[in-house]
Amino acid sequence: MGSELKSLRTRTAYVDNPVKHLLNLYRFNICIMKTNNRPLSPHLQVYKPQLTSVLSILHRATGVVLALGSLLVAYWLGAIAAGPEAYATANALLGSWFGKLVLLGWTWALFYHLCNGIRHLFWDSGVGLDIKTTYLSGKIVLAASVVLTVLLWLVA
């Protein structure tokens, strides 16, 4: 289809007979319409997952998760403000195995978004945009997010 389009475009540009010219123009447009029926923009699923793309998607996903988890932060602070009984209830809820699992996931999301955010700030200033550095910084971000998460749970 591509070569046909190219030859049609050439023929349309250099023809001296007006009728032939219009006919070629018509064929050219039909050809474009046919090509436009194809799925032009490749979708996510045709790409092989790469460290760079996965980390990019994770940045947005963790951002949304953190925003949802901010409800828990507001609840916990509200319990402190409400008094000892409310605080005990909140602690029992967040201290249960399910609460701890949610908090573990949320703290990793927090530190991942924090570390990868710093990576983004470097990119915004034009630093570390080549492929090699991008992969290296991606691995550093993953390691740092795990280290910070472990550190926080050791303190807690």
Partner: peptide, 30 residues
């Protein structure tokens, strides 16, 4: 971007401050 930069020290401080409160009595948290 500006809020992101501000959040780097703020988040680290608050997160580890909260971690220090875990398991402590209510009076300490307050």
């Amino acid at each position: 971007r500006v809020t992101a930069i501000a959040l780097v020290p703020l988040t680290l401080w608050v997160a580890f401050c909260v971690a220090c409160m875990v398991g402590e009595p209510y009076a300490f948290v307050l």
